[in-house]
Design a binder for these strands. Structure first.
Length: 462
DNA sequence: TCAACTCACACATTTGAAGTGC
DNA sequence: AGCACTTCAAATGTGTGAGTTG
């Protein structure tokens, strides 16, 4: 395997490998060991991103050991506790809609993935404390496989059913408010509800068109809001695989900052889920319908509930009849079904809009423009990958609309295993790292399974 | 044959644009 | 002219179930 010092020589001794955790599984199937290696970092390429250097790094405490993940969904899991690495001392994250997640997790959370991309429900929504109110931070989210197995619904429970598919390109969702001050992040919960899950590799950049607005608007800088027009992101997953969302908090003045002031990664065991193209567990379907406002029509009183749908089919067969039914009136807001709304059921996303009186994070203009924009143009540099590193796996076909403007096409970080002969070994070293930002994020080390941890610390990364 | 997947559908929600009044 | 508020329409988010694929 590759030691981090080998991968990032300029890190010096600012990091260390922790001892493997109890229960860590190092026997990942070879399919998951598809890995990545970066050649020597081409630091001169990063010179244009130097303007956001943070204050002196802090000394880090040893991160706590990460407990092993529960073996399977739907079984008795250990008391869920957020797991984190703490290169940002004092920073803590709590899952804001934890009760909802726990409810789903007790059944075995399933997330629909579609070609067009499906939102997560529940969404990851967290509250953060302990940030420096003045410093700027980035919030990132990614989703990593939990183990090396493919799963199958056996009528009552999920059971492993063979080897997992080869891992897909790592993608990292950047919260659209990033970068923002600690005060901003701590003011209200941070929601990642815009992230989408897909099983399609045809759009290698993870974008979907903007929901509203002129089609030619594209992505760019929103002068009115003073923030970046971020598209929703799509994370590529395999169906019937178990995944774990992770949230990363990076102290950096801007997206293209070369020196990060520290990194903290968090994962909440109760947010683990199995990706599916159609719900397998009827209890999950019931929970989703009960909790998701978009599925209101499928509730007992909804016009799209089974009773109503069956009635419509009968009416169709019998011929045209008056459409109105007594049920319609009972679907008024405030009915019994609305009582199930809570947490994610109100997805109006309060964190998207700055609080009254608060100016939106001022765009730091390095590199000749807003830093986030610079990131979109040079994601590889932001993530430390040399510019010549391939950003797209040749095995993934070109998107039909790949002629989109550069910011659009470059806005997603993808890190691929190197092609044969490229200098990047196709086969990765055996994994012994735990989930960490450097794995699923900028430097996707082989497999983010529950192993030892990599303590990156707050040293400058280059 | 069967499991997994895709797609069209109806309905609910969200959100920007347009309209209105002050 | 500018602002706040309301209304409207279109886009988007849902689960369902039939059809398709391998």
């Amino acid at each position: 395997m590759y030691h981090p010092r080998e991968l990032y020589p300029s890190l010096g001794t600012g990091y260390r490998l922790g001892a493997p955790q109890p229960g860590a599984d190092s026997s990942f199937p070879p399919a998951l060991a598809e890995g990545y290696r970066y050649p020597d970092l081409d630091t001169p390429k990063l010179d244009c991103f130097l303007s956001g250097i943070e204050a002196a790094p802090r000394t880090l405490a040893a991160p706590p050991p990460l407990p092993p993940l529960p073996p399977t969904l739907g079984t008795e899991a250990p008391p869920p506790a957020p797991e984190s690495l703490h290169p940002l001392p004092g920073v803590s994250l709590s899952l804001d809609n934890r009760e909802l997640w726990k409810e789903f997790n007790s059944v075995g959370t399933e997330m629909i993935i579609t070609k067009a991309g499906r939102r997560m429900f529940p969404a990851c929504r967290v509250s953060v404390t302990g940030l420096d109110p003045e410093a700027r931070y980035l919030f990132l989210l990614d989703v990593v496989p939990v183990d090396g197995a493919r799963y199958r619904w056996q009528g009552r429970r999920w059971e492993p059913s063979g080897k997992a598919e080869p891992r897909l390109p790592d993608r990292v969702y950047i919260h659209p408010d990033s970068p923002a001050t600690g005060a901003h992040w701590m003011r209200q919960p941070v929601s990642f509800h815009r992230v989408k899950l897909t099983n399609s590799t045809l759009d290698p950049h993870g974008h979907v068109r903007p929901r509203l607005g002129p089609p030619d608007k594209g992505w760019g800088w929103d002068q009115g809001r003073g923030s970046l027009l971020f598209p929703p992101f799509q994370l590529i997953l395999h169906s019937m695989h178990k995944y774990q969302p992770r949230i990363h908090l990076v102290r950096a003045a801007q997206l293209c900052s070369q020196h990060w002031g520290g990194v903290a990664s968090f994962r909440f065991p109760e947010t683990m889920f199995i990706s599916v193209t159609a719900y397998q567990n009827p209890r999950i379907t019931q929970l989703k319908i009960a909790a998701n406002p978009f599925a209101k029509g499928f509730r007992e009183n909804g016009r799209n509930c089974k009773r109503e749908r069956d009635a419509r089919v009968k009416r169709k067969l019998r011929g045209p009849e008056p459409v109105a039914t007594a049920t319609y009136g009972s679907d008024a807001p405030g009915g019994p079904c609305d009582s199930t709304l809570g947490g994610d059921a109100r997805e109006s996303d309060p964190e998207q809009a700055p609080a009254p009186g608060e100016a939106a994070p001022a765009p730091a203009p390095p590199c000749g423009g807003p830093s986030a924009e610079a990131y979109l143009l040079h994601p590889a540099a932001f993530h430390g990958a040399p510019g010549h590193l391939p950003t797209r796996n040749p095995s993934f076909p070109e998107a039909p609309d790949s002629g989109r403007p550069a910011p659009y096409s470059a806005a997603f970080l993808e890190l691929q295993p190197g092609p044969p002969g490229s200098g990047y070994p196709a086969a990765a070293p055996p994994a012994s790292f735990a989930s960490h930002f450097l794995q699923g994020g900028p430097f996707p080390l082989p497999y983010p399974g529950p192993g030892a941890y990599l303590d990156v610390g707050s040293k400058p990364m280059y």
